[in-house]
Every structure is written in structure tokens, then in C-alpha cells.
Amino acid sequence: MSELAPLRVARPRDVEAAVALRRAENQSRYIAGGTDLIVNMRRGIRRPKLLIDLTGVEELGDVSVTQRGVRIGAAVTLAQLAAEPDVSTRYRAAAEAAEAIAGPGHRSVATVGGNLCLDTRCIYYNQSEWWRRANHYCLKHAGTVCHVAPQGKRCHAAYSGDLAPALMVLGAEIEIAGPDGHRRIPLADLYADNGRAHLKLMPGELLLCVHLPAAAPPSTYAKVRLRGAIDFPLAGVAVSLAMADGTVAALRVGLTGTNPRPFLLAETESFVGRPLDADALARLDKLVQKQVQPMRTTLASANYRRLAAAALARRLAARLAGI
């Protein structure tokens, strides 16, 4: 389906008005760049009656640098983020991730907020209306069975945004605005391990901005994808590493594309105080393999994605350690 169902577009000027509009109409959605939402609407997955355009809200649109760190508005575009000198030098992983998202025609309008709130993905879901109907709709939308794991009652669609793991290893927190005011949480707490409902946002809530701390360790991001030019990650890995006297002072590994949510690898404290030698890298590889849970939601096999995630983590950590 190429035509969109009839709808109205509202363009509020401030956050309060946006939240009020969202609360007043149940079948409404926020739209920023639209590069995820419009695709899903054209495919008949989403049919909002009202789109609340966030790009007219001034306070969402800029990057500001203070002594306490950097504040990135939710409607800042990926092109803007990657070109921001403060980001590309101090928060390398974030700039690298932003540059690896889709193509220039997407990045000129696609936003940080839209990327963090990206819908989860699966080969049985990101298809046209007729394809999904012909194949019997799946559990995530309009159906009752998961075609990936038919015995279960869970959706395993993978969260595949590139920015989230990069921001997580940099210690990002997000600010959320809702009917009851603002709240601030670690970025990792935005996500739930559920392909059908992976965002822990209350009705009406909107993502305001991302905060990055002033001091962030060296970081980097890489992903593997099917279409080399532009594509979602089959597995994406961000690493930040601080070394002191030849041993690890802090290590964080963020993962995307493998589970219904992006997440920070658990148990990385066990590397602290030891050198990052071949043994440590082998242990890191195992740890990643244990914690990722790829399912057959992409054209590449689940095991390939597991091994690729582990290999990327090992390679990026070694690169940051200078070995």
C-alpha cells in the first residue's frame, strides 16, 4: 500500500502542547523524521489518525554543551549529530553510529529520538500488507502465532537501532516528558525485553533529550550488515574502554540487532584491574556469545549474528586498547 490512510497532522510549538495532543487522541503518534514510521504506515502496520510532528518544537532541536556534559535534543537529526565537532571528538561511538545509519537522504531528516524509539524488526514483520496477510499475520501485528518460534507466545523481533548501544557505553541518560512532568533515567532503562512492546514509555510520554556526561572514555562503534551501502545491523557493537597503568579501569560493551532490546553486556566489571590480553579478549568473546539472543528474524542465520557480535566486541576492544 503506498497511499496513507486519511489522517491529520498537528505541529505543536512546545512540549506541553505535544503531550496534550497525544493524550487527547488515542490513535495518535509522534512523528519526527518519519523514516521509520512512514514506512510502517505505508505497509499498513500503523494507522494513526493524528500525527504529532515534533520538528516544530524548538527545545527538541539543538545540541548544547555545558560543563556538566552535552544535551542532545530528541529532534536533532543524525546528520546534525555526526557533524557536531564536540560529538565526533569526545563521543566517537555516537558519531560513528550516526554515520552508519541508513543513507544521506534518511539522515538529513531522521532524528535521535526516532532512532532510539525505532520499532523492532523481523523478516515476517517488515513486509507489505499483502505479504503479511498471505503468510498469515504474526503475533507482533494482527496475528496469533510467532513464525520464528511458533511454540512460544513471545515476539523476538530485534531492536536494530545503531545509536542506542553507542550512547549506552557513553553513560547516557534520557529525559522524558509526560502528562505528570519530567523524569530522567539511564538510557538502558527505556527498553524492555519484548519484541512487541520494547519501549517503557507511558501513554503520552515523549523523549525530550539525551544527556551525556562531560567525561567519557574513548569509544567506538561497528556493525555487520547484509547490504554494505546502507542497512540495519545484523549485529552492532559499541565499546568504551578506560585503561590505567596497563590495566582496564572501565569497560562497557553495548549491543544491538541481536535481542528485542539494546543492552549493556553484564559482568564487564570482571575485567577491571587486569590487562586486556589475549585471554581477556577470549573471555569477552564468550561473554558476548552467552548474552546475545539472536533468533531467525533476519536473512542471516542466528548463529552468524552471535559470532559476529562476539568478534566485533573483541576487535573493537583490542583496537581501543591499542593491540
Binding site: S2, V9, T35, V39, D53, V109
Partner: peptide, 19 residues
């Protein structure tokens, strides 16, 4: 479907005309 909007490349198939 790439066109320019204020000199930026944009995909016209993902853009609402009213915007």
C-alpha cells in the same frame, strides 16, 4: 525518489507534503 528540500537530499516517498 530523492529530491532536495532546502538543499538537503530527502526521500520524497517518506515525506509528508504538508511538512
Amino acid at each position: 525518489c530523492t529530491v532536495l528540500v532546502d538543499s538537503d537530499p530527502v526521500l520524497s516517498c517518506l515525506t509528508l507534503a504538508v511538512r
